[in-house]
């Protein structure tokens, strides 16, 4: 089981236990290898997991990136109000790492793993799949227009 799979399971169990109350905010920061990796592919792969933690669809998405796409960030708003900031960087030779901060309305869950160097286990999809990924299309639209994008009620483009 990968580092992210283990984390995902822990988060789901914690939320289900009610120990942090209802999740309202997620901050997820990852660094990935190799340098120049597709940081948007990483974020697109993480979005479904974060959406599952909230249990509600994405309502709004805003994407920003650095020059040469060495860094990508998403601001997400979910149906009913929860929000998330997801970011991904591929700076050489930082290695891989993953930080997660989840706030519930009655508690918080913290995982400081940005500098730990463990493999994340987040699959980078092939170029053809990337083009077909519906979240990637919304991200590309947000980047192209420089504006947040509303998603339909079911949260899928």
């Amino acid at each position: 089981m990968s580092q992210f799979d283990q984390l995902d399971m822990t988060v789901r169990e914690t939320i289900k236990s009610g120990r942090i109350g209802q999740p309202v905010f997620v901050r997820l920061t990852v660094t990935v290898e190799p340098a120049g990796a597709d940081t948007w592919a990483v974020l697109a792969a993480l979005v479904p997991a974060v959406q599952a933690w909230f249990g509600v669809p994405i309502q709004r998405l805003y994407a920003v990136e650095s020059s040469q796409r060495r860094h990508s960030a998403l601001a997400l708003q979910f149906q009913g109000g929860p929000s998330a900031l997801l970011s991904s960087a591929s700076p050489a030779p930082a290695g891989t790492g993953l930080d997660v901060l989840i706030l519930g309305n009655r508690g918080g869950l913290y995982h400081d793993g940005l500098m730990c160097g463990a493999p994340l286990g987040i699959g980078l999809t092939a170029p053809q799949e990337r083009a077909d990924d519906p979240i990637r299309k919304v991200i590309e639209t947000s980047l192209r227009t420089g504006r947040p994008q509303a998603l339909p009620p079911e949260g899928k483009p």
Partner: peptide, 20 residues
């Protein structure tokens, strides 16, 4: 939550608030 850009296109994200 804030997503900002600075001169040169530098992306910045911020979360801020009172959490209990």
């Amino acid at each position: 939550v804030l997503a900002l850009t600075m001169e040169g296109g530098l992306p910045v994200t911020v979360s801020a608030g009172r959490i209990g």
